[in-house]
Nucleic acid binder design. Structure first.
Length: 496
RNA sequence: GGGCCCGUAGCUCAGCCAGGUAGAGCGGCGGGCUUUUAACCCGUAGGUCCCGGGUUCAAAUCCCGGCGGGCCCGCCA
């Protein structure tokens, strides 16, 4: 068989026959990052670098080739008249995709490009497959991009940039929270009872305990236990797992930052949230103004605080012309019918209002950062009732670019009320609501020991990055998004 | 869960409507070329046309079923 992989295995065998290891343990001498060389080129000085060969241009007695090291490209040249031996070694044994050690001297070509005149080279890792596209050109098939994301990132600086922004964002969130005196903590991913959100969980099995457990759907309940324990400011950045559909805004595992602060309420958390997002945007992107695609247009979104605060009832009045606060239940049910919204289980006014909100207040009204505040109490079993409106909860959701980015409360710390709300949730579950919150006795007991007044925040990191880079697909910002596995085919090249 | 679209060489795609020997560019391989950079020029190899069934003398093409992917809608407080 004369496939590329077989041809390259043959090259590998010829190398080995010459006593050359195609996978040496380290470069023959210390190398410096290409980024440093490019940033600070000392012409006529010698350099030793390493990287992947991503382009070769042969001109008879002269070869130009490009290597990429940690995302940075540099051109190298090899001339037959300089070294016949090196030249023919490269010609015979080096292929696109190989990792090379290169040492030589820097110069500028006629066209003014910084180039390494190669004086020595070593194969650091032989590639058996060549890259699917030329470097700098995007892999186009979305299936290949998501299944083999390493190729997508390897060949496309724009894609690499997305993930640099993602991970810089996480870094800057940490720095911001540390700077505010928060301690970063860890809580269990495997839990005997899930909670903290309305969602269906993933089940798993703990062999050692012979028990069915769950993957967490939020970080909330364990972080509040830290507040009970006496830590005043805690946060965690981690994966949540929700057994829901996969679409452009949802991946079954996604990254959240949650924070809890004693003696704060949801007003404090609104200020924290807008400070956090605007500061991180400035540090990562160098600007607080981003562009987001809406239809065929790009909309400028200004992340500078303060963000608009709009109660859910005012949002109804302003954007849907509905005075949902004062309409009777039968009228509200008419609206549900009109928008064909079905409530699972018994009718509940608060939940009906929240469902209706998602439908009637269009995304176009929630492009600029907006805190939607004061949700109906019955839709928020972990939030504290509003200080002046018992039918409402002290809760807000932050919308940017039409997406829900954050959810926060003044936390409920009354253990008896929490138990009451959990009982309501259990009732909902018995009526068929698979997303109703399970009763967590251990959490209620923790509250019985006393939790100070607390403000909490949950921030969707993936969606924040979507806003930062201006994409409508969560798959663009998740390195390895969930995709159905392919049946493994024993193909030539994998079997060895 | 419903709808629309896509699956052909390593990559990007044409061919399908109207059935008749499977194509192009890039990449690979061979050759040429000493300042190119998506290098260029000449030559050449390369296919489970996603899988299974059906119709037909004949299927990449038409029909049915399946698999995988994308987008839209529903669901996701």
């Amino acid at each position: 068989m004369s496939s590329e992989v077989e041809l390259r295995r043959e090259v590998r065998r010829r190398l080995e026959a010459l006593g050359i290891n195609p996978y040496p343990h380290s470069p023959k001498s210390r190398v410096v990052p290409v980024a440093d060389v490019v940033k600070n080129p000392s012409i006529d000085g010698s350099v030793a670098i390493a990287g992947r060969v991503v382009g070769v241009r042969r001109h008879g007695g002269l070869i130009f080739f490009d290597i990429v090291d940690d995302g940075v490209r540099i051109q190298c040249s090899l001339s037959r008249s300089e070294s016949r031996e090196l030249f023919s070694f490269f010609d015979e044994f080096v292929d696109l995709g190989d990792f090379l050690y290169v040492s030589g001297t820097l110069y500028y070509t006629k066209k003014g490009e910084l180039t390494v005149a190669v004086k020595d080279l070593q194969i650091l890792a032989k590639a058996l497959r060549s890259p699917p596209v030329k470097w700098g050109h995007r892999v186009l098939d979305p299936e290949v991009r998501y299944r083999k994301r390493y190729l997508d990132i390897m060949m496309s600086p724009q894609v690499r940039k997305i993930f640099e922004i993602r991970f810089r964002t996480i870094e800057e969130i940490r720095k911001f929270m540390w700077g505010r005196g928060y301690i970063e903590v860890e809580t269990p991913i495997l839990q005997p009872i899930y909670g903290g959100a309305a969602a269906r969980p993933f089940k798993t099995y703990i062999w050692a305990l012979d028990t069915e457990w769950y993957l967490r759907i939020s970080l909330e309940l364990y972080l509040k236990r830290f507040i009970v324990a006496g830590f005043n400011k805690v946060f965690e950045i981690g994966k949540n797992f929700r057994n829901e559909d996969i679409d452009v805004e949802h991946n079954p595992e996604f990254t959240m930052m949650e924070s809890y602060e004693a003696y704060a309420d949801y007003n404090d958390i609104m200020r924290l949230t807008e400070d956090l997002i605007s500061t991180v945007a400035e540090r990562v992107l160098g600007t607080k103004v981003v562009e987001y695609p809406v239809g065929n247009e790009k909309v400028r979104i200004d992340l500078s605080p303060p963000y608009r605060r709009l109660s859910i009832y005012d949002a109804f009045r302003e954007y849907a012309g509905i005075d949902v606060e004062s309409i009777p239940d039968d009228k509200l049910k008419e609206y549900l019918d009109r928008y064909s919204i079905r409530l699972v289980g018994a009718y509940d006014r608060g939940r009906a209002i929240v469902k209706l909100f998602d439908r009637v207040v269009g995304r176009e009204h929630l492009l600029q950062p907006t805190f939607i505040t004061d949700f109906p109490r019955s839709s928020s079993p972990l939030a504290k009732p509003h200080r002046s409106r018992p039918d409402l909860a002290e809760r807000f959701e932050l919308y940017i670019a039409g997406m829900e980015l954050a959810n926060a409360y003044t936390e409920l710390n009354d253990p008896d009320l929490q138990a009451t709300y959990f009982r309501e949730e259990e009732l909902r579950r018995s009526l068929g609501d698979l997303e109703a919150h399970p009763f967590d006795w251990d959490f209620v007991e923790a509250l019985e020991y006393g939790m100070p007044p607390t403000g909490g925040l949950g921030l969707g990191i993936d969606r924040l990055v979507m806003v930062f880079i201006g994409t409508t697909s969560i798959k663009e910002v998740i390195p390895f998004p969930m995709i159905k596995p392919r049946e493994f085919e024993e193909k030539e090249g994998l079997s060895g």
